[in-house]
């Protein structure tokens, strides 16, 4: 892996995602802004329906300081593939082709296009900003909504208590394709995230970054807690920072002890209805996942 280091000291002050209309404390907006600081102005972006396309292009402000297109919901990775091929055909060697799609646009409706792009080895960077539900349309469940989370299509009603399914593991899915570079990240650990964007841009093939990007509106947290909750998702072990490249996995953080899962969940309105059994289940799932990563990723 490349050892380039990005930090707040050497980060550009130039902004390429500025003046958007995202909610206060939006994790997705920060994920886009920081990634573009790494990729720079010679970047072409595609974004499907979702929060970032909804808040990034409101007349008269084109919040993107780069060329960007709103794609069809299912077509993000395919549109990126076309952009990458055309850029090559025109001899544009110094450009980055990046997609920013939410968890629904990635793990649900967009997964077929993404899978095809990885299979063909398209030279694109695909960044999934994961806020764990369809936030743009008002918090409906996605394939990345965690077990038990309340959304408007998984209500904590009299029969069903929040999401009945677990979070789909996109990192494992893209890695199973033998992708050139894949990583998980969190906006709470933004330096780690930015360095992963840099490595993605240098991998010479298809790159996928899955960045945890809390949504104060949908998660039911104070806006000023977006960054700390993003960090806590990693610290409590429900999320993890990892990389995959050339067939090898690497864990970037291996906490000696996890912070309590219950503390993380109880801070969020979407988990308010959870019983102690539900929390115990979340802890068991976390432990099983870490057991898997530590034993199966022999080089982790």
């Amino acid at each position: 892996m490349n050892n380039a280091v990005f930090s707040s000291r050497n980060m550009t002050e130039q902004e390429f995602f500025f003046g958007h209309k995202a909610c206060a404390g939006c994790g997705g907006a920060l994920a886009v802004r920081l990634a573009l600081k790494v990729l720079g102005e010679r970047t072409f972006a595609a974004l499907p329906a979702g929060c970032m396309s909804a808040v990034g292009f409101i007349y008269p402000q084109m919040a993107f300081g780069i060329n960007a297109i709103i794609s069809t919901f299912a077509g993000t990775a395919s549109m990126l593939a076309g952009m990458a091929a055309a850029a090559r055909a025109q001899g544009l060697e110094d450009v980055h082709i990046v997609g920013f799609a939410g968890d629904g646009g990635t793990a649900d409706i967009g997964i077929q296009a993404l899978s095809g792009a990885i299979d063909r080895g398209e030279r694109i960077i695909y960044i999934c900003y994961d806020n764990e539900a369809y936030m743009n349309t008002g918090t409906q469940k996605s394939g990345l909504t965690p077990l038990g989370a309340r959304t408007t299509t998984t209500p904590d009603g009299s029969v069903v208590g929040g999401s009945t399914t677990k979070k789909k593991n996109m990192f494992d899915i893209v890695a199973a394709h033998g992708i050139d570079y894949a990583a998980t990240a969190s906006i709470g650990y933004y330096q780690d995230y930015m360095n992963k964007v840099l490595r993605a841009s240098q991998c010479g093939g298809t790159a996928y970054i899955h960045v945890m990007a809390p949504c104060p509106t949908g998660w039911g947290i104070p806006t000023e807690h977006a960054l700390t909750i993003a960090r806590e998702s990693v610290d409590c072990g429900l999320w993890y920072l990892a990389e995959y490249s050339q067939g090898k996995y690497r864990l970037n953080q291996r906490p000696e002890t996890f912070t309590p899962v219950e503390d993380y969940l109880r801070k969020q309105g979407r988990f308010k209805h959870l019983q102690s059994d539900d929390i115990a289940q979340a802890v068991r799932d976390r432990d099983a996942r870490w057991q898997y990563m530590l034993t199966q990723w022999s080089d982790a």
Binding site: D108, I109, T152, T153, S158, V160
Partner: peptide, 29 residues
Amino acid sequence: YPITPSTEIAEILSERLPQVGGRFIQMED
């Protein structure tokens, strides 16, 4: 699948169908 301006139909049936023994599935697309 959620899509404006029809989403309320899904949201309401996600709660109402289980109450009458029916099934609601939010699909991937």
